[in-house]
Nucleic acid binder design. Structure first.
Lengths: 362, 362
DNA sequence: TACCCGCGTGGAAACGTTTCCACATGAGTA
DNA sequence: TACTCATGTGGAAACGTTTCCACGCGGGTA
């Protein structure tokens, strides 16, 4: 039952009654051959159900036609979409994708890179915890492996497909300021293992400073709190007086809304929430999420394109950051004017608004 | 600059002053060697920065330690999570994942399988348009390649990790019936290219019949309508009198809510919505989505485990469907009691209900 | 007639492994 | 002393390709 025998080009040559070299030339259309031999080889290949072994080819040719890709996790739609973008760009080029994921573990990161390199990939597309400090990555590059980064802000000596996290986060601060918010917080998961989160915080922080707002609170969450609205609510409750929260990704921002609801707060009346990433679903929500909209698939496509360029021998050039869009959504509003009565809303006096506007323009 | 020379075991042997065979034995700990030679080889390998080429190994050993995985798209979180599950199970086994995606194209499906097979993968984990009709898949299996399916309902001769789509959908019909719904619809994207959608519809249909409800309307959407709430609203508006919608996936269900809102309908008061899949985010929504909760990552893990078993020579056995859970959420309620006032529906005379029931039973 | 050239063809090396086999060397036994 | 045996070692084949090179053979020119 187990018909495990492989059909090799040798078999085809024997069947066609010619030499291996000739068979190879015919099947690859890579050299001369008389019409008769050509025909014999082709029918032989057909009959035997021959197909080339990529292994033998790779070993001989020095190119595996495989490119390695490392991302933290495919469970995060942002990375999954990016990988999908990579796939789309690679489709039709003959390259296949060898995928590894590290679960945000810097150790696993390094191992994965080493394994991919051992598999003789022709290039690497990578998002990892700390590319600038990865020995394996450095070694891979020294061996001449082209490397293309995704999501990372530019690092000396690497090309990367990214958005300007700092600038985007500063934009959020500006929006908050324009609306009159002062007490804000930045919410992040895995802050320590993500340069993206750190850069977003830095930009947000700088933006707040620039507008004369108090420094934002930095709230770092564990996996558990992020997935359990009750826990998240408890944490948020500990921070008094917040009127606006900037979450490091959309997933978190949606969780915040849920938590706010548990706390009896209304979004955006009592609390404004802005996310980051612009995942598809955010737009379809009943109350569309305000967020920095980026295009993870575009990032994947750019990273793949850059890698293709490098593999063709071009030195490659760092492209400018991909554009982001501030999507207003419906989770962002001016803070409630703190009034005497109970903790319910009341319309802001128009004067306040104009005042702020003037301030902004001055 | 381009230090592209590879360090092979030959180099190590020369540096250590011994034969290739000995070097191989030492580095693999696969045979005897005197302590001195052992030491010389190890330091030589260290100094030269040697690492094995998986290519040479695969060619010689007949096993590539790579398994191929084909899914329709990584942009769909359901598949992305499944692949992540596969990764998790494979981690530590030494196997790497070669990924392909087909964009729901049956043609691309076949090509991808062929390419993966050419790369000499040791096994295949597959979700495709029509596995039972794929020539490439059949051929791969005839060559002795173990194949493990994901998401597909059982197909003759294949092992699959799946949920019972039919049964789950019937459960939805039951819930609708219990609440008193009668006019329902089934909403699907790519109905024709997905056996899952078709089975869900079949189960839903059967469930409705069994409870004496009218047959559900079948609404098939294009990509554009699914992503544009306005278009979706228009389509829904064309179907008068619907009180409950069963969407073939959560993404669609969320879009329906948005569309309902555009139509001035409130969920679940005017319209109940139930999804399928149980993606993470659905639970965090302000109004949690009612859905059939499945575990895509568990599906990936089971498929991977099955494949590992098969690769170890076990014949492998079809496991029972993975469990699903009906999550009530907050988008499901009894239909509104139809009152006189505005242009809303009006109660059907009870007689009709009994009539249908009688019809079915007769 | 002798020579050259182009063309179709096949042998063989190379890619990096693993592993079978044979060869030494030394110790132990008869 | 002569034999066996275990042990460490290296040569070489094999895995499936591609490609360099050489060879034979025909037709053209000198």
């Amino acid at each position: 039952m187990d018909n495990r025998q492989k059909v090799t080009i040798k078999d085809v040559a024997r069947e066609a009654g010619c030499g291996i070299a000739t068979a190879s030339r015919v099947l690859n259309k890579s050299g001369p051959a008389s019409p008769e031999v050509r025909a014999r080889v082709e029918t032989a290949a057909q009959d035997l159900g021959f197909s080339f072994s990529a292994l033998g080819r790779a070993l001989q040719g020095g190119r595996s036609m495989t490119i390695g890709c490392l991302v933290p996790s495919l469970a995060n739609p942002v990375f999954a979409e990016a990988v999908q973008g990579v796939q789309e760009t690679l489709a039709g080029t003959g390259y296949q994708l060898l995928i590894a994921s590290s679960n945000y573990d810097g150790e696993a990161d390094n191992e994965a890179i080493a394994t991919l390199a051992a598999k003789e990939v022709d290039g690497l597309i990578v998002t990892m915890v700390a590319p600038e400090r990865s020995a394996a990555l450095k070694q891979a590059r020294q061996r001449g492996l082209p490397v293309s980064l995704m999501f990372h802000d530019p690092i000396d000596g690497f090309l990367t497909a990214h958005v300007d996290n700092f600038e985007a986060a500063r934009e959020v601060a500006r929006r908050f300021a324009d609306l009159g918010h002062r007490q804000t917080a930045f919410l992040a998961l895995r802050f320590s293992t993500s340069d993206r989160s750190r850069n977003r915080y830095a930009g947000f922080h700088a933006g707040c400073r620039a507008r004369g707002m108090p420094d934002p609170a930095l709230i770092e969450l564990g996996e558990a709190e992020a997935n359990t609205p009750e826990l998240l609510a408890a944490i948020l409750a500990a921070h008094q007086g917040l009127t606006a929260i900037f979450a490091s990704n959309d997933f978190l921002a949606i969780a915040v809304q849920k938590a706010a609801r548990l706390m009896g707060k209304s979004v955006p009346r009592d609390l404004s929430v802005v996310g980051f990433d612009g995942i598809e679903i955010g737009r379809l929500l009943d109350v569309p999420l305000a967020t920095i909209e980026t295009a993870p698939d575009a990032m994947g496509r750019q990273a793949a394109q850059t890698l293709l360029d490098m593999m063709q021998g071009n030195p490659g050039v760092q492209r400018p950051p991909l554009p982001f869009d501030f999507r207003a959504g419906a989770t962002l509003a001016p803070p409630r004017t703190k009034s005497r009565d109970d903790d319910q809303v009341r319309p802001r006096p128009p004067s306040v608004h104009s005042l702020k506007t003037d301030l902004k323009q001055g």
